[in-house]
Design a protein around this nucleic acid. Structure first.
Length: 275
DNA sequence: CGAATTTGACCTGA
DNA sequence: TCAGGTCAAATTCG
């Protein structure tokens, strides 16, 4: 399989958690230093470059670990569940029969399940991302200690924003959240500080992007999507993986002009999407 | 009192 | 058939 990177399931990911976290912390520390240098000293490009290299190396190490632990799993392909737009939308006579009682009662369940056009996964200790979300459901997941919460953009109705996200605590580290973003924000709610008042400042560690339609260049540069991820990374360094193109992107909130860096496995760091 | 969350019912897809 | 996703009434919150 040469189109999908063998990304591990979150459970597998956690087996390397200590090393992963260590490396990610290194990366974050370097990023913090870099941020100070760039924002306040406004110069030494050489020093900045060194730090950038360290950051990239740390994240590269992390990726390698994760890739080692991983296997050809469905986590990604599931996430990019093909979007057959014309999936059965009209209710069949079968479902009509089944809906009879529901019709009498209410309209619960009368919906069309979305097919994911774009899915991104974030592992973070915070779930705040700068957007306003409305919780619309919660489910206990089989073999999972923690329930999964379902959120949709608060501007779904007033602005027609179709972005949703699912949040679930990690199995063996309840401090960490496994957050799946589905769809992109079309609303104008960027950086609303009070978006998710219950959550502290964000510091996402890892994110995985899976775009089933990523073959379209416009998807890669989708402004809403990028803005969303910039939101997610407020206050820290984020890491994005374009699964389809096998391209890793290291990004920093201040949008530094990082040079694309070739990684092992022929992967590439590139921040151009966020510049 | 309006907005947000909770919760159980119901539908979809594998 | 059933796990997971969504809906909307009921409940809670500010």
């Amino acid at each position: 399989m040469d189109t999908l990177y063998p990304w591990p399931e979150p459970e597998t990911l956690s087996s390397n958690k200590k090393r992963v976290i260590q490396k990610l912390v290194e990366g974050q520390q370097c990023a913090t230093e870099l941020q100070v240098i760039v924002l306040h000293n406004n110069k030494p490009p050489q020093q900045a470059e060194e730090l950038v290299q360290k950051i990239l190396w740390s994240f590269n190490q992390t990726l390698s670990m994760l890739a080692e632990a991983g296997h050809h799993d469905e986590v990604i392909s599931q996430n990019q569940a093909t979007c057959n737009d014309d999936c059965k939308s009209q209710d069949s006579s079968e479902s009509s029969k089944r809906s009879l009682s529901a019709f009498v009662k209410d309209k619960r369940g009368c919906y069309k399940r979305k097919r994911f056009a774009q899915t991104k996964i974030v592992v973070s200790d915070k779930i705040e991302d700068g957007h306003a979300w409305r919780k619309y459901g919660q489910k206990n997941i089989l073999h999972s200690k923690h329930p999964r919460s379902y959120f949709r953009c608060s501007h779904k109705h007033d602005q027609g924003c179709s972005a949703i996200k699912q949040v679930q605590r990690m199995e063996d580290d309840a401090q960490m959240y496994h957050i799946t973003y589905i769809g992109t924000h079309t609303c104008r709610d960027q950086y609303s500080s009070m978006a998710t008042p219950r959550i502290d400042s964000p510091s996402p560690i890892l994110k995985l992007e899976s775009e089933e339609q990523a073959t379209t260049p416009s998807d890669v540069t989708d402004l809403d999507s990028m803005t969303m991820w910039t939101d997610v990374m407020m206050g820290g360094v984020g890491f994005e993986i374009d699964v389809v193109s096998n391209m890793y992107s290291c990004t920093e909130i201040t949008c530094l002009d990082l040079e694309p860096v070739e990684l092992e496995n022929g992967l590439l760091f590139d921040d151009t999407d966020f510049a």
